[in-house]
Amino acid sequence: MNALLPLWSFVVRTSVKWPILQTLAPFVPVVALWWAVAAWGPFPPAFFPSPADVVAKFVSLMEKGILPEYLGDSVARLAIGAAVGIGLGVPLGLWIGLNKSAHRALWPVLLFFQAIGDIAWLPILIIWFGFGLTTMTFVIVYTVLFPVILNTVLGVRSVRIELHRAAQSLGASPARIVGEVVVPGALPNIMTGLRNGLGYGWRALIAAEMIVGTSGIGFLMFDARRAGSVTEIVLGMIVLGILWYIVDAWILAPIEQATGRRWGLVTQ
């Protein structure tokens, strides 16, 4: 028992030093199990590829340059969606949050359009813009936009009235109040909105790439589906998972927590 203590101590110290190991460790038994099932399980390889097949496929697609290209396309679309979503959503959200009558008139409309959901727009978008980039951009911007607007509105309305009054009595003009009080106060909610929006957005992107796409990870997977290549589908899923895990766990969540926790604000 006591002989194990130094070992345990070593594990704890390394995992504090390299937190990524803690993240990766649980995947080891999962991959091992996957490997075992693929090797000895009842499924034919065409139905259930092994990790080695997927890695080999990864290498060959990297060499051919297909994967980097498709990945670049997907990420660029996501980035455009995020940028336009913030660019449009935050000002709109600020306006709706600060203006009572705008809020009353537009809130139900926003909820309804958010409820329709990105993907349901695809058929009519295809009629309008055809199969292609415009359709996909529309879908992803649409998906990111609504959560950002809705959460910005919530954030603006959660800024306490005393803070407005304090800024006013310290001589701030209405424009300065928006910049110095409302935007920072709403920031944790805005980040939550962005995180939710991108969460929905990248799913919409995958769906759009499957249905209308000519490139991108979603297209890669669906094209592989048509050719019956499970290996490429699994590879696509893993790439998607890792990509989004990185974006969400290492970029979005820390920003959200940094604003919310640092300032002691509770995010909605």
Partner: peptide, 24 residues
């Protein structure tokens, strides 16, 4: 603590990304 990253990974992947393999 051990399982959280795993569950997070799969919840990140949840839904649409499974359509190709599900249909297969």
């Amino acid at each position: 603590a051990f399982l959280t990253p795993l569950m997070r990974f799969f919840s990140v992947l949840a839904g649409i990304a499974w359509i190709p393999i599900a249909t297969l």
